[in-house]
């Protein structure tokens, strides 16, 4: 499913405006331990996390993720946003929890 459609259906905030949201999302990975996400996430996944430290951008880049969904209404600082923009990583936000987002995304991707 296209990321733009996921953003629309789940009413996600795009925290990095002017991002190219046309990429294809094939799965998702939930995790807040960055070392574990580095080992487990796969290209094409949407990463669902509460983390918003600037290191999430490099983790996304290294694992080939296009987008990171930051849940529970947590908001990244300028450094994280700038690195995401510079690195071409799309940051999304929602006030919902990881559980709710993962459940709804699972249903969407299974359709």
């Amino acid at each position: 499913m296209r990321l733009s459609e996921i953003i629309d259906r789940l009413s996600l905030d795009v925290l990095t405006p002017a991002s190219d949201v046309d990429s294809e999302v094939t799965g998702a990975y939930c995790g807040d331990l960055l070392s574990h996400v580095l080992a487990k996430a796969a290209a094409g996944d949407l990463w669902i996390t509460i983390q918003h430290h600037a290191n999430i951008v490099a983790v996304a880049q290294v694992t080939g993720l296009q987008a990171v969904l930051i849940v529970d209404g947590r908001s990244p600082n300028e450094e994280t946003l700038t690195r995401a923009k510079d690195g071409g990583i799309i940051l999304l936000g929602t006030s919902e929890s990881a559980f709710i987002m993962a459940g709804r995304l699972h249903t969407l991707l299974a359709d």
Binding site: L33, L34, S35
Partner: peptide
Amino acid sequence: LMAQLGFVPE
């Protein structure tokens, strides 16, 4: 630090 953040922040 390594487990939580993956690597030393730049």
